[in-house]
Amino acid sequence: MDILNALVAILNYVVVPATAYGAQLALGALGVTLIYGILRFSNFAHGDTMAFGTAITILITWALQSAGIGFGPLPTALIALPFGIAATALLVLGTDKIVYSYYRKVRAAPVVLTMVSVGVMFLMNGLTRLLIGVDEIKFADGARFLISAQEFKKATGLAEPLAIRSTQAITVITAAIVVAALFWFLAKTRTGKSMRAFSDNEDLALLSGINPSRVVAMTWIIAAALATIAGTLYGLDKSFKAFNYFQLLLPVFAAAIVGGLGNPLGAIAGGFIIAYSEVAVTYAWKKVAMYLIPGFQPDSLLQLLSTEYKFAVSFTILIIVLLFKPTGLFKGKSV
């Protein structure tokens, strides 16, 4: 029984939240890795793209809510999501046209483009704050739990609860659908293949008659969609705060690099590696240890690091990978 209780505690406090968080990071890292693979720069504005997309989604959610439109047990934000994606896609396409396209034309070094993305980051950050302010916003509505702690305890008779919030379930399901759709698109469709070809070998892609501006536009649209979905899911699961989204940049980049920049499969693996490590390292293992070792009464929480240091986890994993496998766990681009 105690082993079961320990398992349930691990599930409840580590596996469930880390899976949801991992899915959010994976979606973010996919956007970063796609932009890196095709546009060949590290986009520092990605965190703020996530914030902008989420802000628009929240505004539309509020409008829908005040018009009395809901989505039954699901969060209203899911209806608003396509509008958020559309607005974000328009914004990044406009940014590409006004800002980035010039640097592609003059074939600027990637680090210059990265610097430019810092400028875009400022703009988007300011824009998001103008739109929705800097306060913490909770916008999840609909059913709270898929499995509530009370029900679980009653049904199983265990001492430990297992709760799965509906936002966590929605996160994982949505992420699975989005990732499946993305991989299908990249593997099977003509446009998707042309994007991979462009990422693989730009000159040969041009020789083969692949239209670069179409590939670039598709990449931005997909990145905007991924960023908005990741941001909205993160906001539903936790809450929305513009500055937190900026800070997500580190775990998102760490996930993309750990997996191998430019490699979509790696981005997903990286997202989950970072998320599981973060949650496992910052979880207080006291309860689990007490179940597993009878009579054990530790006087500390058995927490490896306090939650404030979760960034240290992303960073440490990043450094370890950089030291031992600089192209990432899955082979990414090395140039």
Binding site: L249, L250, F315, L318, P326
Partner: peptide, 21 residues
């Protein structure tokens, strides 16, 4: 010591991390 000598972007991300930490 760890991030230099790799790709330039790696230093950017590694320093972003050390800054936060």
């Amino acid at each position: 010591k760890t991030a230099l000598g790799l790709r330039s972007d790696y230093l950017a991300v590694a320093t972003l991390g050390i800054g936060e930490i």
